[in-house]
């Protein structure tokens, strides 16, 4: 019954426990606390990450794993010549380059609008936030109906103002822009809420002082509001950027990457080459490249925010 006596000893914190024993017990407790998380992170995050890197240097094909050979940089060289990959990279870049600034500015504008003391302003806050409450799969399905060129709401509404009809998702030049519009519609409310919290942190007396000095609304925006939320602005831009590089659900549900690969993205290619074509080696190379892009963005974020706070 040794464990029992040991336990009572500790509970009473008796001097019979030597400092050494105590130290060891503390060590066991610490490792007991961090152990489960560390083991899980190792098996389901670190290990797969290392494997992805390793596979990217092999010709691992899912159906013939016994033939796997080390091929060096072969997969990465193949990427440079793969027109589909380059197209997916370009599509992803297009999405990022438009969504990040537009969504951030839309969210900021919405936040400024709903930050005013007006009757019923709470309703408008909830209205702009409502699309966030639905999931991306759900809005993607919904908007596929809305974008239907023959039986869709979008063309009916645009027709009222004398525009269209558009082909939206079925046209290779419009599909990505249609996805971009929907994505901003879905996500802007989320950033709006973060901006709103930031705006409410700015002390009122700054605005009052500016009013006394005769500043107009625009000057207040440029000299008080924007500097006051600068860190949040950078944070949102970066978070949106990382999320945007992961674009997958919208093209998967709405267009299956088409038409003519015009909405195929990096992550879509990771999925397709890995699970459809079973080319684990090549898929891993794309995954690693994708990881590097996210890494670079994250490093840029640290730089930016450090500079700002200094």
């Amino acid at each position: 019954m040794e464990p029992v006596t040991q336990k009572t000893n500790v509970n009473n914190a008796l001097p019979t426990v030597s400092p050494k024993q105590r130290k060891r017990k503390n060590l066991y407790t610490s490792y007991g606390f961090v152990g489960p998380a560390i083991i899980l992170l190792f098996v389901f995050l670190i290990l797969p990450a290392v494997l992805a890197l390793y596979f990217s240097f092999t010709n691992y094909y899912l159906l013939t794993p016994e033939n796997t050979k080390f091929v060096g940089m072969e997969n990465y060289k193949r990427l440079a010549e793969d027109s589909l990959f380059l197209k997916s990279l370009g599509n992803t870049a297009l999405f990022v380059v438009i969504v990040v600034p537009v969504q951030t500015l839309v969210a900021l504008a919405l936040a400024l609008l709903v930050n005013q003391k007006l009757m019923g302003i709470k309703f408008f806050r909830m209205a702009f936030f409502a699309p966030v409450v639905t999931s991306m799969v759900i809005v993607s399905i919904l908007w596929t109906f809305i974008y239907n060129p023959d039986n869709g709401l979008a063309n009916s509404i645009l027709n009222i103002v004398g525009l269209g009809p558009f082909q939206f998702l079925t046209d290779k030049d419009q599909a990505m822009y249609s996805i971009i519009f929907m994505s901003i519609w879905q996500g802007a409310g989320y950033q709006m809420m973060i901006f709103l919290a930031g705006l409410q942190e700015i002390p009122d007396h700054l605005y009052e002082a500016a009013s006394i000095d005769g500043a107009n609304a625009w000057q207040k925006l440029i000299h008080i509001t924007i500097p006051g939320i600068r860190n949040i602005l950078v944070f949102i831009a970066i978070v949106t950027m990382i999320a945007a590089t992961k674009l997958f659900i919208q093209p998967f549900v709405m267009t299956q990457g088409g038409p003519l690969d015009s909405t195929k993205t990096l992550v879509y290619m990771v999925y397709e080459t890995g699970f459809k074509f079973r080319d684990v080696g090549y898929s891993s190379a794309i995954a690693i490249l994708f990881f590097l892009i996210v890494l670079i963005i994250s490093i840029l974020q640290r730089r930016f925010i450090k500079e700002n706070t200094e």
């Binding site: 992170l41 995050l45 797969p48 990771v270 890995g274 995954a287 996210v294």
Partner: peptide
């Protein structure tokens, strides 16, 4: 190490995780 792991996007470990 834990903090560094935050950066790893799930999409990049999808396939090895599937194999595990």
């Amino acid at each position: 190490v834990v903090v560094a792991l935050i950066i790893i996007p799930f999409e990049s470990i999808l396939l090895p995780l599937y194999l595990i």
